[in-house]
Design a protein around this nucleic acid. Structure first.
Ligand code: FES
Ligand code: FES
Lengths: 132, 132
DNA sequence: GCTTAATGATACCATATTAGTATCTTTTGT
DNA sequence: ACAAAAGATACTAATATGGTATCATTAAGC
């Protein structure tokens, strides 16, 4: 039941910090503030800017700032980036597709629960998180 | 977002089968029916009987049967057995406890979502799953 | 009582995912 | 030119999960 992973957590914290500061923030600054290993933080930031969540500025006095309004960044997007597709199947039968697939009750129930969770996750955006 | 793991899935399928048959079922039979690797299935069954979900009978003509009414076996119990504690923290800050812990909004939100999922999972029991 | 077919216990290996590191190149303000 | 930033990429480590192998123990049935 691990909803969010470490990557995602770090990413969210970084984004929140950048959102609060509302200025260009450098990787070293984030490393200091969040206490995350430097190369790891950099990797995460690169990913976020590649995904257009952040906007990066190279060169001296460079850094990162948000590329979207905090309101427009849902945590589910970030989960997507670092954890791949969110939905899953609920049936692990070997390699082949389970013959029972259509009727499987467990499968259906799990689907519903997942969708509920996803709906709730979609509501949470950065604006919500930084607002005390 | 992997709600249930392979272990759990296999276990649930085994339990459902045993519940439907409503007799003593052997590991080899389950292996055949469910198409799960034999030693793996055995390991799962052993665990289930150790946890008092199943009742095991040794010796020739031995096997497993349910130790509880299907209604009394919630899938969350099985998740517990094979996936450990279900709740988690939502904060991954290094080793120490996050100073922000108390106020952290993300944390709270995640908690709520998890609890909702858990509540829903608690509703699902074997009786529900085997009822067409 | 001996054989056989079952489970109990345990220790081990394989694979995938996640976490983290290292290194080198490119860009840009001063 | 130089320094300080990000870009790119390839590698290693740790952990969790999935799966295997082996040997001991129990009990029904002849
Ligand atoms: S048993 Fe295969 S989908 Fe549920
Ligand atoms: S940032 Fe530590 S609990 Fe949320």
């Amino acid at each position: 039941m691990k909803l969010i992973t470490r990557n995602t957590d770090y990413a969210l914290r970084a984004i929140c910090y950048i959102a609060k500061e509302n200025k260009i923030v450098t990787a070293p600054e984030l490393v200091k503030v969040l206490g995350v290993p430097r190369p790891f933080m950099r990797k995460i930031l690169q990913r976020l800017s590649k995904e257009k969540i952040l906007e990066s500025h190279k060169g001296q006095a460079g850094g990162f700032k948000l590329n979207l309004l905090p309101k427009k960044i849902s945590i589910i997007q970030i989960m997507h980036i670092f954890q791949g597709q969110t939905g899953l199947d609920g049936c692990f039968l070997k390699k082949d597709i389970c013959p029972n697939r259509g009727k499987c009750i467990l499968r259906k129930k799990i689907r519903v629960i997942e969708n509920n969770a996803l709906t709730q996750l979609r509501q949470i955006n950065i604006a919500v998180l930084i607002k005390g």
